[in-house]
């Protein structure tokens, strides 16, 4: 399936994932701080910073897809299952949330866009699914059993 070894795949994943997440964290604070320091920032500047702030997550999705292609088949199967579960739970939550808003059961958020929470919710659901499914399978992450 690929010319990269299992260990190389792990390294290649972390080599992109970690710096990109640090960059994302910095941008989350730097963007609003920079805009607040200006007198009357132009609309295009808001738009540019918003797009730049979201771009690292696109890179994370790309590196996750590359990792799935490059890792060993057992890890690929397990991670695919966890991603699918995380995605299904996130989409279900957003769908329920959307209908609850539509039927005016819950108010629309005023200061923060609910859309901002979709990606963090997905990663949380994916992480919980991966942990839970690993436990169900009996996979251990640290102990060597011979």
């Amino acid at each position: 399936m690929n010319n990269v070894s299992f260990r190389q795949a792990n390294r290649r994943y972390l080599r992109v994932f970690l710096p990109v997440m640090v960059l994302y964290g910095i941008l989350c604070f730097a963007g609003p701080y920079y805009l607040a320091s200006l007198d009357a920032p132009a609309t295009w500047l808001f738009a540019t910073l918003a797009v730049i702030n979201a771009l690292p997550i696109v890179v994370v999705f790309w590196v996750m897809a590359r990792f799935l292609r490059e890792t060993d088949e057992y890890t690929r199967r397990n991670q695919s299952e966890a991603l699918l579960t995380g995605g299904a739970i996130t989409l279900s939550i957003t769908f329920f949330w959307g209908f609850l808003e539509q039927y005016q059961v819950i108010p629309k958020w005023e200061y923060v866009s609910v859309m901002m929470l979709v990606v963090p919710t997905f990663f949380a659901c994916y992480g919980i699914a991966a942990f839970y499914q690993a436990r169900q399978r009996g996979d251990s992450l640290s102990c060597e059993t011979d």
């Binding site: 060993d72 088949e73 199967r77 251990s140």
Partner: peptide, 16 residues
Amino acid sequence: LDVSRQSVNAIETGRY
């Protein structure tokens, strides 16, 4: 085999 240790464990125990 260039796989994870979990893979070997899962194959040996018949889980995969």
